[in-house]
Simulated scan of single mutants.
Amino acid sequence: MEPSNLTRRLKDLEDNIKKDFALLKDYEDALRDEDDPRRKGKYNRAIEQLRESANRYQQEYDQLHQQITGEPTVQMQSVAIQLQQMNSRLYRLSAGQKAIYENINHLRQGLLAYYDAGEKNIIFAITERLNESQITTISALLDAIESNKVSDAEMQNILPSIQEGLSILQQRGVTFPGSQGEIVEVINAPQMDFKHRLKVAVPIIPFILDYEGELELGTGINLKEALKQFMARPRLIGG
């Protein structure tokens, strides 16, 4: 290969690596501050595309390196360093995301432990969409319900709000993950134990809160405020 062609290809490769490295840092910063699972998924997919690009850059660099006789040029060494930095950052990010995923998965399994096998099948897909904070909050509420730390009067206040919010979402064509028909059937089944119905309904709260400003629930119960009050009570955390 002509030296000028080699220099130009290396320059293009170097520019592409710099641009992707800057993007990677931006995505990493955004991902660190993001709680929404959907946007997190978007950033993770973008990072995966950068990982694929880094693999292509490495292959191109290796091909160019084979065409050089003698010692690597300063330009070749510079590109090699940038590739190493990008690969190292991708590796650290991957390791960090794996640790986060394992922690969230552990929390999710703890949440699902409140349900029997049939109920787990109904709400599993919903729990997959909850972030760490939501899982922690819902688990605390489930523990309070299971431990009879939420009174019958309180339960009978919050379930109608969930039912109404869900009904409005259905009317507007909004769906949430999971077996929606089965969930609605359980929540609205008057012959079933009230506590049982509320336990199945609780994981839906975050999805209803996403539309809180638009719903204007006729029950007069503010779900977000009710949830805050539940979590603020020492007896939900202690005993």
Rank of each mutant, 00 (worst) to 15 (best):
V150P: 08
I205K: 01
I183R: 02
Q171L: 14
T219G: 09
V174G: 13
V202S: 01
P160N: 08
E154Y: 07
R129A: 09
S151P: 01
Q163V: 08
Q171K: 13
N121M: 11
I187T: 02
A140I: 06
L130N: 02
N188M: 07
Y115V: 15
E146F: 15
K120G: 04
I205E: 05
I221H: 02
G213K: 13
K149S: 12
R172W: 12
S179E: 05
D210M: 11
K120F: 11
D193T: 01
T136D: 07
D152E: 12
N157L: 15
G220Y: 01
Y211E: 03
A125F: 05
T137Y: 04
G220M: 03
E216F: 02
G220V: 09
I145Q: 14
L130P: 00
Y115H: 10
N222G: 00
P203D: 00
T175C: 06
G220A: 07
I158F: 04
D210S: 13
V200L: 08
I205L: 06
Q134T: 07
T137N: 02
I138S: 11
I168C: 14
V174Q: 11
V184C: 14
I208P: 03
G165S: 06
I126W: 05
G178Q: 05
G213F: 03
I204H: 01
I187H: 05
R172G: 15
E164L: 11
M192P: 00
Q171Y: 11
I183M: 12
L166K: 04
T127D: 00
L198P: 00
D116L: 06
D116H: 02
V174S: 13
I208F: 04
P206W: 01
I123H: 10
A153T: 06
I204F: 04
E164F: 14
I208W: 02
N131D: 06
V150W: 10
I221R: 06
G178C: 05
P206I: 01
R197S: 01
S151K: 07
Q170W: 13
G213Y: 06
K195G: 12
A117M: 07
D143G: 13
S133A: 14
R197W: 07
E182A: 15
G220D: 00
A144C: 12
V150R: 14
I208Y: 02
A144K: 04
G218W: 04
E132L: 15
T137D: 04
M155T: 11
Q180N: 10
E214S: 11
I183W: 03
D193L: 12
R129E: 05
P177Q: 06
A201Q: 00
E182W: 08
N121F: 05
F124V: 15
Y115Q: 09
A140W: 04
L130C: 03
F124M: 11
D116Q: 04
Q156C: 08
A144F: 11
S161W: 08
L141G: 10
R197G: 00
G181E: 04
V174L: 10
L142S: 13
